[in-house]
């Protein structure tokens, strides 16, 4: 139980996928222009990340390892992620049209989020068990959601600030992401087992 809690803290704060591992930067920059889009993206990513972490664990341990096909890891995980993204979209569209309206355009974008593939590969690299893989995926998604929502709120404020012309838009957003990353260095050393 303590181990799972440590994994959760480690993935949310200490090794935050966006600010410390620098994964998933495209949606971090692309979908942070307003708060609602960021919140929608966070929810959709959280669902897909946890699901694909679980399925890729099963794929790796029950198909690739017994057949000695570990070299197909990357391509296998990409297929799993693409399938689970598609599955999520179909499910959401059928079961909750309202949710689909909110999340609709973000769900296909998740397939290109490198944090999702990163979680699947890192789970194998750190030889996590099934529960650990699930928590790892969920923690990564929570960390992603946390910084994405905070960043979106900051960017809404930057839109009305008197920023020098050459730095408006993406430039100041990247500077901000850099300072956020500096701040996250403060968590280093936490969640050691």
């Amino acid at each position: 139980m303590t181990d799972l809690f440590l994994i959760l803290i480690a993935t949310i704060l200490v090794n935050n996928f966006v600010l410390v591992r620098f994964l998933g930067l495209c949606p971090f920059m692309g979908v942070s222009r307003n708060l609602e889009a960021a919140a929608g993206m966070s929810l959709a990513t959280a669902f897909v990340l946890t699901l694909s972490a679980a399925i890729s664990y099963l794929l790796h341990h029950y198909i690739l390892v017994p057949l000695q096909l570990e070299y197909l890891q990357t391509i296998g995980f990409i297929v799993v992620i693409a399938a689970s993204v598609q599955f999520t979209e179909i499910m959401v569209r059928r079961m909750s049209p309202v949710l689909h309206q909110v999340l609709g355009i973000y769900i296909p974008l998740i397939a290109t989020n490198c944090a999702v593939l990163g979680v699947a590969l890192l789970n194998v690299k750190e030889s996590n068990g099934f529960a650990e893989s699930l928590v790892y995926g969920f923690g990564a998604a929570t960390g992603f959601a946390l910084v994405l929502v905070l960043f979106a709120a900051i960017r809404e404020r930057l839109d009305v600030a008197d920023i020098p012309a050459p730095f408006r838009g993406t430039a100041i957003a990247l500077v901000t992401a850099g300072i956020m990353s500096l701040a996250f260095m403060g968590f280093s050393g936490m969640a050691r087992p």
Binding site: L150, F151, I179, M180, L182, A183, G186, G189, M190, A191
Partner: peptide, 18 residues
Amino acid sequence: WGSYADGVAFAVLLMNMA
């Protein structure tokens, strides 16, 4: 729990973010 002895600067920047 962190590796820095004092966390004031980090704590302030982290809450600035929020």
